[in-house]
């Protein structure tokens, strides 16, 4: 695609921007994220210890910590063994989510391009997509299972259904965000639909693609978990179910915490890639008003 990689040979002007603006913003967002995390953990701990819920079923962050890191707190005795048992479970879910995300992003990108190219496709496909969007996934899931069986393909389809529509609408909005003058410019130099798409529309859609990706990435984790919960015997979703039926509550709560952490990590990864790709190439969107306007 037509993205410029002039980042390393910037003039004085953008270098100044780089050394002042980005780190401060990064530090602030890191600190606020850490504060939020501590607050959530504190609330979790306080609610469970002060309530009358059975401590046998309801576990606190400290219990999860003990399950993960303290020898003898649960079986197997060694905490390292318990952690080692979790690794393949997490790996399966990560695999399901990753395949699902790739599936969803690809389908959404292709869908958005087709929609932007053809008004017939828009008229035919958009209502169907909208209707499908309103059908609860839990109602569709058995149908998908009946058709595709258990396997990574079904996991990918479930994840793709969750992410496809919002991602496609985001990308589509991005594709049509190019100014009329820019489109005119491409025509003025004899450029056709293909050049317009490649050199103008796709690069213009990148910020909205990433905005959609930051929502889609954590959503695929929950979609993968849902698939495993319903149709599979592996991964976080399936193990949530079995740990519950074996009344292994420390494991159950640990798995819940791991699932949440995985969804947050998926978001953070999407945000990181967004920053790596967009910053310095695209106009900053969240800068302080007084810093706007550039150098003139």
């Amino acid at each position: 695609m037509d993205i410029d990689d002039g980042g390393s040979e910037m003039t004085d002007l953008p270098r100044k921007v780089r050394s002042v603006r980005i780190p401060r913003r990064a530090i602030i967002s890191f600190l606020s994220a850490a504060a939020t995390l501590i607050l959530v953990l504190l609330l979790w701990q306080v609610i469970i210890t002060t309530s009358t819920i059975s401590t046998y079923q309801a576990k606190t962050p400290i219990d999860v910590w003990r399950y993960l890191f303290v020898d003898g707190a649960a079986k197997p005795v060694s905490a390292a063994d318990r952690r080692a048992d979790l690794v393949p479970i997490i790996a399966v879910t990560v695999f399901h989510a990753a395949v699902g995300l790739i599936f969803g992003v690809t389908a959404a990108t292709v869908g958005a391009i087709v929609l932007s190219l053809s008004s017939t496709a828009r008229a035919m496909f958009l209502p169907i997509a909208l209707v499908l969007q309103t059908v609860p996934l839990i109602a569709m899931a058995p149908v998908i299972f009946a058709v595709f069986g258990s396997g990574v393909l079904t996991a990918a389809i479930v994840a793709a259904i969750v992410t496809f529509f919002p991602l496609m609408m985001n990308i589509r909005a991005g594709l049509s965000s190019a100014s009329p003058e820019t489109i005119e410019l491409v025509h003025a130099y004899g450029g056709g639909r293909r050049r317009l798409l490649w050199h103008v529309q796709l690069p213009a859609a990148l910020p909205s693609l990433f905005a959609g990706l930051k929502i889609a990435a954590p959503a695929t984790v929950s979609a993968a978990t849902l698939y495993e919960f319903l149709f599979s015997f592996e991964g976080l979703g399936a193990n949530l179910l079995t740990s519950k039926s074996y009344s292994n509550y420390p494991l159950l709560w640990t798995l819940v915490a791991v699932t949440v952490a995985l969804a947050l990590a998926a978001y953070a990864l999407a945000a990181l890639v967004e920053r790596l790709v967009l910053s310095h190439r695209y106009p900053p969107t969240r800068t302080h008003p007084s810093r706007r306007g550039g150098a003139s």
């Binding site: 037509d2 410029d4 003058e181 410019l185 003025a188 690069p203 213009a204 990148l206 190439r281």
Partner: peptide, 15 residues
């Protein structure tokens, strides 16, 4: 021909 508009129509991601 070359052409210029009132809106500069520059691509923001290009240098």
């Amino acid at each position: 021909y070359g052409i210029a508009f009132q809106d500069h129509a520059l691509l923001p991601w290009r240098t």
